[in-house]
């Protein structure tokens, strides 16, 4: 459930295919995950999980895997 929700947030925010969302998906490594997309991604994650991220966590959110770890902190 959590994994599906997280993956869908990335698909929506970055406008990419589901099969592109892997643990290796990383900020500035994928052509669609640039600084503008990062802002959209943060908004999407906050909306999907009904949370408000700290700025340090936004800066640290450098990959799909890292995003999962960070979001878990807020919903635990």
């Amino acid at each position: 459930m959590f994994e599906d929700k997280l993956k869908q947030a990335f698909v929506n925010a970055l406008s990419i295919e589901e099969n592109e969302v892997t643990a290796e998906l990383a900020y500035s490594q994928h052509p669609k995950w640039d600084s503008t997309a990062h802002m959209v991604l943060i908004a999407e994650l906050e909306s999907s999980f009904d949370i408000m991220l700290d700025t340090d966590d936004i800066i640290d959110m450098s990959s799909y895997q890292k995003a999962g770890e960070i979001i878990q902190k807020y919903i635990a």
Binding site: V40, A43, E44, S47, M52
Partner: peptide
């Protein structure tokens, strides 16, 4: 602006 824009982007 930082926080507001995150809500507006939605």
């Amino acid at each position: 602006a930082q926080y507001a824009s995150r809500l507006m982007v939605r």
